[in-house]
Nucleic acid binder design. Structure first.
Lengths: 308, 308
DNA sequence: TGATTATCTGGTAACGTTATCAGATTTGAG
DNA sequence: CTCAAATCTGATAACGTTACCAGATAATCA
């Protein structure tokens, strides 16, 4: 094309105020540049952070995101998956791990590239996932607590359904305990739904048990902060009376006093990776990986003290 | 249509695994059922909550949302607005109040229904908006502080550009002060960007001023919590040494000790209303209103004490 | 049974783009 | 000035729907 013609065309675009119609373009090209994202609950700090990193990575690659906030409602999840399919999205990211038969069947017959972000699909569903090693992460932190002299270690877990992050984290807790020859006190193990209030309520029961734990390990920062609030509401001190460790290393760890020591998940990397893999699949390449496991680490702040 | 024919068709849909193609449908119907949302920063509690209410209201009306997270980057905002136009979204919700010439011009010539949510457009842009009366809200809370005997009232404001929420809230602060015959101490007035760290940093400067304020009023909960952390990091106590009041009444008010008293914004209503008005416009009705002003109230928790 | 209405069938055009191709026109090299 | 290559022009089909219409068939009422 000659440069002068290009100018004339550009002038015409200006004059006529022409804006291309992506819908028509998509219809013929069969490419929408849309990524559908299913999120458990975007008003939560973990998911809203992850979502913002997904958005960032997507927009850098000229993809736009359609968000489906399902608030743990499986019907809404299925509905969104169907809508995504009708809308011909190029790919789907799922940040939710529960599944029912309908969703499972839908996903099995779905040809749209899909990746699980900070969640794993049932084994019958063949989608790549991006996670940390939850079991190892949990094991590592409990082992660290033990190395600090703790023996009375309470656990605030998450949903413990098979193959869920909640299950893995619980397994890691158990493994570290049995390995150290510490018997599990059932009074000190409770499961919530990752929310702040769950942590508060569960901590309440711990505080009523005969003997107090020396440390409580919560499987989300929100629950850890709930526990923290419960503790200070009972005029006890963290970490002097009870130590506290969270999970995720979300921003809430720094908004609270004492600052919360927490198991760090590389959220940015998780979001970015999910998008990268998805785009590879969209472009017809093999994802290259089935399960991406990113590395974790414990970041120490001020809510955990040594007993030695 | 006869019911038996309906059955046959439904059977065929099942057998062929037919899924309608919304893209093709949209092309002919000129309706995408898409709402584009521009958000300042979705990883922030205020915006992620509002967004989740917007999503809820939209999905109840069979609309899907496309989110553009601009992180206060005006170029990205313009880019998203253009993309929204190309994608033929049915409507746009803007949760951001800064504007430059490009955006202003774009919006002036845009025919897509648009509403501002918790933000107001420049007067040259004719879009409805949903807000509280920021000036009145700020005025009311400062007046309340005064009625509690406070005279040394510090202010952590937001961006103070014309017609912005930050400006209105500052005006309310000033009005209440002059009305009570209290002179404004410039050492006790600082402006941040609504983030926690801003509150922390600004509080630091207050703590270094000759005389300490008896209360600080921050124009977002995040900044208030930042201030709170700064205060406790200096071994001072809230509200014994310094009282604290936030703005928004977001969930952070309850995640922090002492619980933060804060000016309540009806976030759910704001999100819902924005969507309702937008949908009215999309359906060709007049929005009915130009500026919706919802009511606010101060919700008292434990960070404010009376001096009387 | 015949007239009237309800329902079905199949065909066509349109939405705004992209891909492709044939033919016309311009450009550059020798 | 000629010929090949580069560039332009205009036309056509396709993407998967919906709207519309004419004509055929079936159901309903008198």
């Amino acid at each position: 094309m000659k440069p002068e013609v290009r100018l004339i065309v550009q002038q015409a675009i200006e004059d006529l105020n022409f804006v291309p119609n992506s819908i028509a373009r998509s219809l013929v090209s069969k490419k929408t540049n849309l990524i559908g994202v299913i999120a458990s609950d975007i008003s939560t700090s973990f998911f809203s952070s992850t979502l913002s990193y997904i958005e960032e990575a997507a927009s850098q690659n000229r993809y736009n995101i359609l968000v489906g906030n399902i608030k743990d409602n499986l019907d809404k999840e299925l509905k969104y998956l169907q809508v995504f399919k009708e809308m011909q999205v190029d790919g789907i990211i799922i940040m939710h791990e529960m599944m029912d038969k309908h969703i499972e069947r839908f996903l099995q017959s779905l040809t749209t590239p899909t990746v699980f972000c900070s969640a794993k699909p049932n084994s019958s569903v063949n989608c790549p996932s991006v996670n940390i090693d939850d079991m190892q992460a949990s094991y590592d932190t409990v082992k660290h607590l033990i190395s600090l002299g703790h023996r009375r270690i309470a656990f605030i877990g998450g949903d413990t359904k098979e193959l869920s992050t909640g299950r893995y984290r619980y397994d890691g807790y158990l493994k570290a305990l049995v390995e150290a020859g510490i018997s599990v006190n059932p009074d000190w193990v409770r499961f919530g739904n990752f929310k702040l209030q769950d942590g508060y309520d569960i901590m309440q029961t711990f505080l009523q048990s005969e003997q107090l734990p020396t440390v409580v390990f919560a499987v989300s920062d929100d629950m850890a902060v709930g526990a923290l609030n419960c503790i200070v509401d009972h005029d006890l001190k963290v970490p002097d009376d009870i130590s506290l460790v969270g999970f995720d290393d979300s921003s809430i760890t720094e908004t609270v006093r004492p600052k919360l020591t927490s198991l760090h998940q590389p959220i940015q990397q998780i979001g970015q990776m999910s998008v990268d893999i998805l785009i590879k699949m969209i472009e017809g390449q093999s994802p290259g990986v089935k399960e991406v496991v990113l590395s974790h680490k414990l970041v120490e702040r001020s809510s955990l003290r040594s007993l030695l």
